[in-house]
Structures are given as structure tokens and as C-alpha cells.
């Protein structure tokens, strides 16, 4: 396929806050460099040759050719490691890091839309710089003004970029597109499988118990046993739960009712019961069954009728009587 020279240098939409001319120019150059890095040196030459033959004002094309060759030479003569690292966007690199397997890649368009970032500037320090980093905007121009300052702040900005990405992620995975990306990961079991034996390898969903960052690390929700688990690998111990948020599993269940079918096949498995030489442990003993209720589902007609009574609250007869008498009797006993 012929590559158009003008397309090479074309950049994607630059958001309004990058209006300064120098800045735009910087972004254009960065994009062109990135594109060239993706091509092999040989391909650049053939592309350039092709442009030379195809474009109508030959001098313009020639100048482009020289520019291309000069740029690519410079790039390929540079340290191979640094150039290959720069091939990828910040987002792609971040999502491929060890332990970052749970993250979906947020498209740049979503991040560039200021509406999706409402309120985040107040939570994330170095917000502007962090956003620039996530979007791969170059901040050379600012570096000229205060280089030493910038250099010392870099680790802080990197940390802020991770925080910002996580908080955008929390919102993004609730959108149609985000849910779609997460569903693909769910289906391929990338969030792990439920450790509970009777859940039979049910795929899990990442979630947080808080929407504010810094409170707790990521937890995993199993729709089959309706419970939450710690990730099995310690590599997820530094992933903040708020980067997935409290609403994600609930939203997922609402949007993909087919998950319910996966659950129904598994809830027929019954429950585990502790046995001693084939006999059930007596309920009266301390190790007797006390947690059956947690995994119970209404089966018999009476149970289903009782379940229907729970529509808008616990049925009062059971709720009131047992608890209250127990408390009062307890006091009289002691």
C-alpha cells in the first residue's frame, strides 16, 4: 500500500489546551518520529522513493525525502534500546507491565475528552503533566524553562500518571466500550478463576471496595458464589482497588445477563459439608455447620415463597423474634 507523505507527518487531533504553536509543532515532530521508528530503514527508503515518483511538485517531495532520510538515519543510529522503548504509547506500555494484566487499554479519544475527566484534577497532583504523559504529549518546551525542576519532579509525575490512569480506568470500564474490552478479558479468564471448588473455575472480575484511591488493593468478584476474593498472586498487591471501582461487577452483571447462565449451571453443585468418617458433624458442636446460609439458594416451594417475601425487606416474623429473644435471654443467662 502506498504511504502518503503528508499522512506520515499528520498527527491526531490535538486537544484545545495545546494551542500554542510551538507545542503543536513539537507534537507533530514527535508523531513523525514515532511513525518512522515503526518502519525499517529500508522501508523508509522505498516509501520515500515512491513518494518522489508519485507526488506532483517534485521539489517538495524531494525535500520530504531528504527530511525523511535524515530523520530516520538519526533515529536508527541512536541507541536501539531507547528507540524501541519509544515505539509504544504510554498506555500500551503501562498495560503490558508485569502485574498490570487487569487493566484495559483506554483509547486516547476517551482520555482526550475533558468531560470524562471531570473532577479528577482535584484528586491527582501534577494533573496536567500526568495527563500529558499518558497521552504521550511531549513537554520539551516546558523543560527548557525549568529543566532541573522538571527532572526532580519526574518520579512524582509518573506516579500521578498511574493514579490518573487508574481513576480514568474506573470510569472507562463502566462505558459500553470499556465493558466490551473487560468482557473479552473475563471470557479468556485473564482475571483468574474462582478459588472455590464448587464454582468450577468460574472466571472472576476485578473490583475495589472503595472508589477513593489509597484505601485497599484490588479484589476479585465471583458471580457464581457472589463473593469477593484476594488475588492469588502477590503481583496484584500494589494495584489499587479504586482503579476498578465498586460499581464494575454490578454493572457487568446488568449489561451481560448471559453471566447468569454460567452461574445457574454451577449452583446445581450443592454445598460442601464437613464429615467425619462419613457422618455429618453435629450442628451443636462448635465445628458444626454454621455458614450454609451464605451459599444457599431457594430450592423447595416453601423456600421460594419465603424468598419472594424478601422482595423489599426481610420478613418481619423471622427477623424480629429470633434476634430479640436471643439478646434478652443471653443477658438473663449470664
Amino acid at each position: 500500500m502506498p504511504v502518503n507523505c503528508t499522512n506520515l507527518i499528520r498527527t491526531r487531533r490535538i486537544s484545545p489546551r495545546k494551542k500554542s504553536k510551538d507545542r503543536a509543532q513539537g507534537v507533530v515532530e514527535i508523531r513523525a518520529t514515532r511513525f518512522l521508528q515503526k518502519l525499517t530503514f529500508g522501508r523508509v527508503l522505498t516509501t520515500a522513493n515512491f513518494c518522489l515518483l508519485q507526488t506532483s511538485p517534485p521539489i517538495g517531495a524531494q525535500r520530504t525525502l531528504f527530511l525523511l532520510i535524515a530523520m530516520s538515519k538519526q533515529i536508527f543510529e541512536e541507541d536501539d534500546l531507547t528507540s524501541s522503548e519509544e515505539l509504544q504509547s504510554w498506555v500500551a506500555t503501562y498495560c503490558q507491565l508485569f502485574g498490570h494484566e487487569f487493566f484495559a487499554q483506554i483509547p486516547a479519544e476517551y482520555i482526550e475528552d475533558d468531560f470524562n475527566l471531570t473532577g479528577l484534577a482535584a484528586i491527582v497532583p501534577y494533573y496536567r503533566e500526568a495527563l500529558d504523559m499518558i497521552l504521550d504529549y511531549d513537554f520539551d518546551s516546558e523543560e527548557e524553562t525549568k529543566p532541573a525542576d522538571k527532572q526532580s519532579q519526574l518520579p512524582l509525575i509518573e506516579h500521578s500518571a498511574e493514579l490518573l490512569y487508574g481513576l480514568i480506568h474506573q470510569r472507562f470500564i463502566l462505558t459500553k466500550q470499556g465493558l466490551g474490552l473487560m468482557a473479552a478479558k473475563f471470557e479468556s479468564g485473564q482475571f483468574g478463576k474462582c478459588p472455590r471448588v464448587l464454582c468450577e473455575q468460574m472466571p472472576l472480575l476485578p473490583m475495589g471496595r472503595h472508589d477513593q484511591p489509597g484505601k485497599e488493593t484490588v479484589r476479585l468478584y465471583c458471580a457464581c458464589c457472589n463473593d469477593i476474593y484476594l488475588p492469588s498472586s502477590s503481583k496484584y498487591l500494589n494495584i489499587d482497588g479504586s482503579f476498578f471501582g465498586t460499581s464494575f461487577p454490578g454493572m457487568f452483571l446488568k449489561v451481560f445477563p448471559e453471566v447468569a447462565r454460567m452461574i445457574n449451571n454451577r449452583t446445581q453443585n450443592g454445598q460442601f459439608e464437613l464429615k467425619c468418617f462419613g457422618f455429618k458433624v453435629n450442628e451443636v458442636s462448635a465445628s458444626g455447620s454454621r455458614m450454609r446460609w451464605l451459599r444457599m439458594r431457594p430450592q423447595t416451594e416453601a423456600e421460594i415463597a419465603e424468598y419472594e417475601q424478601c422482595e423489599f425487606g426481610a420478613p418481619s416474623e423471622v427477623d424480629g423474634s429470633s434476634k430479640e429473644t436471643m439478646v434478652s435471654d443471653d443477658q438473663s443467662m449470664s
Binding site: 450442628e283 454454621r290 444457599m296 423471622v318 427477623d319 434476634k323 429473644t325 436471643m326
Partner: peptide, 13 residues
């Protein structure tokens, strides 16, 4: 809620 009712029944028993 229904499961909590089952637990309260166990507690009462």
C-alpha cells in the same frame, strides 16, 4: 436478605 433469614433461623435453632 433471604440468606440472612436462613442464618437467623440457624441462630434461633
Amino acid at each position: 436478605r433471604w440468606q440472612a433469614v436462613q442464618r437467623q433461623k440457624t441462630e434461633a435453632r
